[in-house]
Design a protein around this nucleic acid. Structure first.
Length: 635
DNA sequence: TTAGGGTTAG
């Protein structure tokens, strides 16, 4: 660079500064590129090398009139309609990116189809299709593609890379088939694109993405292929598969592919969902050791924050957040959600306020995090306030998820009628999660009538979700309506539904110790059960009376058959007590909600063992210490 | 020299 003349080259050497324009554009230094062009030596014309770059720089700076000026200049010099393929392509890209589609179409119309080389035609169409894709104009992409085909211009991989992501979900398989017929589907770039596009179509899409990946010849899979298929699983809640892919890619299957930050973002996201703490800690170690510049990567930092917030290390999440040089709304949301899950609604609210005061406008996801934080902390007034002003203050129209948070908030606060009225006021049909939140509130407040109504809707919306049947059955049990219990159980039997088995796990010395309810398969099972029985005895003596009917039922069952009725979290905590140092916190990850009996048990045990237990259940964290729980019995 | 693939939060 030092040898470049600081002033434009003379008549004998137009290249250096024209080439410099190109370099500056490539580096994203658009203003400098245009300044150089303006002050460049006008003779000899036409500086053809600099013009396409200049057009791209104009577009990058949204200088629509600059593009038009260069367009006019080029036309005057006879470089258009198709004499200079690069300039044509740059103009078409820029007009499309700037949303000036009529001009792009006009340029396409002006190309002499017969005399223009085929590659120039293909590139011209590709430029417009890609420009439309960038502008999120899927219909325009397909309209131009149809024109391309009508003009008998063949497409290539580049066409597909723009077209595939623009296709509506139902059309993707058709474009896929078209690519396969053209022999392009096997190209690495096209296959990678198909994988990530299918991944957007939910769990079914992830299966299709997986098929594309599996059908690729192993030698043609690159790092992006592995990242795309791993993310496809991570994004669709298939964390176990994502972690398995991570293991495979580092082994012989991966062919020496080294994970990068994108890989680790997907892995951390899965760890966060699964509660796979040791894998997540390993990934963090890798990041600290091998990716020294990771703090500049907002995605990676966000993934780490989210992992720690959801896996119990809230202080670490806060520290990573504090150390970030630049944050996005995702960083804030991850932290807000984390505090909410731990029952620190007040902190979540003040973080939210700080975010807004720093000029970040909340989005729908941030509002879900905030409202659920209010809900977990019983912050009825704040929740109502934020919900009712989200549209006026932030132009956010409530979605199904926001309604679900609010029904949960109102319902848990005992305002069942208000929750029911909120559902009636909705302009869209309520989904299973919303009726489910109402049903959950009916369980807490033992309301059969409203519960039955919610259940009627759920059975239609999510007929195979066993959890809701169990919830309804428990409402009948709690209110002594045994015929209701029998009815719901019969429904489950007829539909072949089984309650999801509860399971909990503890990690110890890098090993996962998994416990199911009443499960005796652990090598230390004998000691563990002995300890639970002893602790239960102690709890009984301590509490004097049983707290709930549920606990009584458990006790009756246990008396009849002494080795059943042991919920998985009790076993996991007992394992922790037997195997860990007295000063350490025992962290348990559970798939279902903690039941009332286990909750009382863990509170009491934390008191007389002088140990802290951190339990992540299906909806939040409970930290048991000194005989109390961080949820303040509100959950 | 032009067009172009994978990434986080609920």
């Amino acid at each position: 660079m030092a040898t470049e003349p600081s002033t434009p080259g003379g008549a004998d050497s137009p290249e250096p500064w024209s080439a410099r324009v190109r370099t500056l554009t490539r580096l994203g230094r658009h203003r400098e590129a245009l300044a150089l062009l303006r002050h460049g030596n006008p003779s000899p014309p036409p500086h053809a090398v600099a013009l396409p770059s200049a057009v791209i720089s104009c577009a990058a700076l949204s200088l629509s009139s600059g593009v038009s000026q260069i367009h006019a200049l080029a036309a005057k010099r006879g470089l258009l309609p198709a004499a200079d393929a690069y300039l044509l392509s740059a103009l078409l890209t820029s007009y499309s990116r700037l949303g000036r589609l009529p001009l792009a179409h006009q340029l396409l119309d002006e190309m002499p189809l017969e005399s223009t080389p085929h590659t120039t035609l293909r590139t011209a169409f590709n430029s417009v299709i890609s420009g439309c894709a960038l502008h999120a104009l899927p219909a325009a992409c397909f309209a131009v593609f149809r024109r391309m085909r009508a003009a008998s211009v063949g497409f290539d991989a580049v066409t597909l890379l723009a077209l595939v992501p623009a296709a509506p979900p139902r059309v993707v398989p058709q474009v896929h088939a078209l690519a396969a017929r053209a022999g392009l589907a096997a190209e690495t770039s096209v296959a990678n694109c198909l994988i990530s596009t299918y991944a957007r179509g939910g769990v079914g899409g992830a299966a299709l993405a997986r098929r594309v990946f599996d059908e690729m010849p192993p030698a043609s899979r690159d790092l992006v292929s592995w990242n795309a298929v791993l993310s496809a699983h991570a994004q669709n809640g298939l964390g176990v598969d994502a972690l398995e892919l991570y293991r495979r890619m580092r082994g012989p299957d991966g062919g020496g592919v080294e994970p990068d930050a994108v890989t680790l973002v997907g892995v951390l996201s899965s760890c966060a969902h699964l509660g796979a703490r040791s894998v997540g800690f390993e990934v963090e170690r890798y990041v600290l050791d091998r990716l020294p510049g990771f703090r500049a990567n907002v995605h990676l930092c966000n993934a780490l924050i989210n992992f720690h917030a959801r896996c119990g290390s809230l202080p670490r999440a806060q520290q990573l957040f504090d150390e970030m040089p630049r944050r996005s709304i995702v960083s804030w949301t991850a932290l807000i959600t984390g505090y909410g899950m731990h029952g620190h609604g007040d902190v979540a609210v003040s973080l939210f306020e700080r975010m807004v005061s720093e000029g970040i406008r909340p989005d729908n996801v941030a509002m879900v995090g905030l409202l659920s934080a209010c809900s977990h902390s019983g912050m009825y007034d704040e929740g109502r306030k934020y919900f009712s002003t989200m549209e006026s203050a932030y132009k956010l129209r409530p979605t199904l998820e926001h309604y679900a948070c609010m029904v949960d908030l109102l319902g848990r606060a005992g305002r069942l009628r208000e929750a029911r009225e909120l559902i009636s006021s909705m302009t869209m049909p309520a989904d299973g999660a919303i009726w489910g939140a109402l049903l959950g509130a009916c369980k807490i407040h033992k309301n059969v009538e409203v519960g039955e109504e919610a259940f009627k809707h759920i059975v239609e919306l999510e007929p195979s979700n066993a959890g809701y049947y169990v919830l309804m059955s428990n409402i009948y049990t709690d209110t002594g309506q045994l015929e209701g219990v029998a009815r719901v159980r019969a429904m489950m039997r007829d539909r072949g539904l089984k309650k999801e088995p509860g399971c909990s796990y503890v990690e110890h010395k890098g090993q996962v110790h998994l416990f199911m309810a009443d499960d005796h398969s652990h090598p230390q099972a004998k000691r563990i059960y002995k300890l639970v029985i002893k602790l239960e005895q102690m709890v009984k003596e301590k509490l004097g009376v049983m707290e709930s009917k549920a606990a009584q039922r458990c006790a009756e069952k246990a008396a009849a058959q002494p080795l059943i009725g042991f919920h998985s979290e009790k076993l996991a905590v007992a394992f922790g007590l037997l195997n860990t140092e007295a000063s350490s916190e025992i962290v348990v990850i559970k798939n279902l909600r903690v039941c009332g009996d286990c909750h009382s048990f863990l509170k009491a045990v934390s008191g007389f063992t002088n140990r802290a237990f951190l339990v992540r259940d299906a909806s939040r964290f409970h930290r048991f210490e000194g005989g109390v729980c961080s949820c303040k019995d509100y959950w």
